[in-house]
Design a protein around this nucleic acid. Structure first.
Lengths: 243, 243, 243, 243
DNA sequence: AATGAATGAGCCTTCATTCAT
DNA sequence: AATGAATGAAGGCTCATTCAT
């Protein structure tokens, strides 16, 4: 019933507000990345930031809010990079490759943070209501915009649902970097970007199955038309052709 | 508000060991899927299995081992399904589409278990040393084998690293089902399998990047006209309508 | 999830001291009544008063002192009402009924404040040393004065300890309004005042067997002995005697 | 993510369950009574009971449940006393006086516990849904039953709402013992019981205000007539009408 | 006078694992 | 084999009060 007794104060630093926030954010980033979110304690974050635990809660309402803030700052840095650079790249394939490469580079450049986002933030139940979800959407939309431009230009075909394309790009990147994020493997953003871009680009090419240049290309194409009329899947075409 | 009641002493049932294990496994599966691994307590698993907590530790060295066991059983069921059915499917595209569809169907059919595996088991630090990791590798290798067959048959080109192809397939599937696994969206295994298979298949076609204004451009245009008239795959319908 | 925003710097308003105090008092009253004392935070009081927390402590030495101040103001309002009105009422029963009704009306009219006083202020360890305790004493003494007048006038008998009478009146009022103060019931100040006044008034009527010192005291004592042997209540005495 | 590491066990006592519960309950009773509920810590309760904190939660789901249990045990002891003894008392006044005295004796005999109940348990928001509320109702109903018997026997009049009578008895007892419960005063259960019982009993007497055959009866009757001419109360109307 | 950020002790609760019976 | 009670460390969060500016 009686209020907590005051204790002799230690020393009371008065930094500018922004510096405090920055110190806390950075400390949180470091601790979360090192140990993971669940394994981090607010006590450790506070200690590393040079404040007491209570001070954390003056700036952030909860440990989780602090995580979100850390991740938001990360996205901001990413975006800052993006905007400029993309403008200097021309051509659908090149632009696509640039964005994929950029994404892979992010994964490669800060695996701890990416692991934090992917393994600890994203699985949480309210992720889809969080600001980070929206940031991520904005992030992926940049890539999808390039695809759409390609389609609009007639360079790519609109036949494949864009969500599939998006999931293919980001899912592939994620899977591909999986082990690396865990500190258990390596990958090359450049090589992966090349391969992935090619796959996606080719997958969206209008020519479909036309191994062009070959002498019998037109013959095969006729065969295929016939087969299609028989109601058979495209896969069959090849086999029959081969047979 | 009387103290928690002591449960009535259970009879020391003399079940066969296997039944015990099965009961515990099933209880664990149910609880883990319902509440997630971290949120599940051994107490609840034991209660649902009709044993006391201590008994759990007679059969499994830890809660985590129990999780691994549960997931292993799940993989076993998947495999049992697979082997037979794949043998009945011919053609690279079809076989690939079958495996992709099967994978998506698994995600669709038991989202809770898949979420458990993907969000709770896989991020753990020793996943790559676990039996489940090996099972999963075996699982994905089945799919990669089809790709390799396609390459061996000359139907697909070997230019793209297989790991990229694998990551594209499973990464896409995972991303695509993400919201669904959280109970926050829908997806169609069939439609997704079609689109994904097409993308991958086309991405591995030999025709390469003939974006040229090459000589056969006009031939291709003719082909397209034919295709439009025939109108076959779902993806194609759109194009037809648009055309 | 950006960090808690710093509030825009408030203008250092140069209110008259009294207005400041009044604003703080009113804010505190509102917050304390809404959420209870323990559940209220000085931060919220300050915010509602439009000042910062530190300013609170310029005017009040502690949160608890603020509570006391709030309650004192409340008592003052009550007293202001009282003094005048009572003068217009004549007759012991009427005056008693008026005061009881007034008390019940206060409970009825501001249940939140009364709950605050009764459930949160009064149980605190130093209540009996507080100014509010003295105010309350003054408050109850007004009622006791009426009783004393009635006794002095020979209309009521002095046999019952006044503290019991007082406790009966205020204890009854408090119990009667209990649920209402919690927002869980209703009561009528008028009906309760009637019943309570009658009970008290009748309980202090001379007719009962208690006017001792009278000549027949020893006779009554004998009667009581007899009755005790019969196992009958003293009340019977009267009726039997009267009969 | 990894389970908490086990530490070297200290010593593991295995008392009979009931003894453990009793030890915890008694420790909780002692600590709560000494320091109040809010000021007590589960750590202290556990220490006094000779168990670790976790053990508390095996038997009770929360600190508050422990409080409720302690209070329930207290009520049980009270009831055990009651039942027998009341049977040996005859006559409305005597029975009423016994119950009131008993209640006051309880307050007098265990002030710390009663303070706990009245100041810490009862004000809590969900008190009215608690088992203790029901126990208390049962407790007060015992007393009201005696009043009802008196009314049924024609010894008391039914004109006053029973809830008012109940509130008067228990409210008075509570107010009367207030300071004592705080360790700041004294009171005599016997004297208070006598006075309170008389007040209540007389307040429920049928005879109205006129019954004595005493010499000054006529004088009083005249006084009353005067008062009636002045006034006023609704209660009186009834009597007048009846007269 | 006013600000408003820093303090920091301490609480209730959880639960995988162990082990005496 | 089975029981089921005991362990005990750990952690996020609150908030009245102080005091440098």
């Amino acid at each position: 019933m009686s209020p907590k007794a005051a204790s002799p104060p230690r020393r009371r630093e008065r930094w500018p507000r922004d510096e405090r926030v920055a110190a806390i954010t950075e400390a949180a980033r470091a601790v979360f990345c090192e140990k993971g979110f669940l394994e981090s304690s607010t006590a450790e974050v506070a200690a590393r930031a040079g404040v007491v635990e209570g001070t954390l809660y003056r700036y952030f309402p909860s440990k989780r809010a602090l995580l979100l803030h850390v991740v938001e700052r990360f996205y901001e840095r990413i975006f800052a990079d993006y905007e400029q650079q993309l403008m200097g790249v021309r051509g659908t394939w090149n632009r696509l490759r640039f964005l994929i490469w950029k994404h892979l580079s992010v994964l490669h450049g800060d695996p701890a943070m990416c692991r934090l986002i992917m393994h600890e933030l994203r699985p949480s139940p309210d992720y889809r209501r969080s600001s980070v979800f929206r940031l991520n959407r904005r992030y992926t939309e940049r890539t999808m915009a390039v695809i759409k431009e390609g389609i609009a230009a007639g360079e790519l075909v609109p036949g494949v649902p864009l969500t599939i394309v998006r999931d293919m790009i980001f899912g592939c990147a994620e899977h591909h970097s999986w082990a690396y994020l865990r500190g258990e493997g390596q990958f090359s953003p450049e090589a992966a970007a090349d391969a992935l871009t090619d796959m996606v680009y080719r997958g969206l090419q209008p020519q479909a199955l036309t191994r062009s240049g070959s002498a019998d290309a037109s013959v095969r194409r006729l065969e295929q038309a016939v087969r299609r009329l028989e109601g058979i899947s495209p896969a069959r075409r090849t086999r029959k052709a081969a047979g």
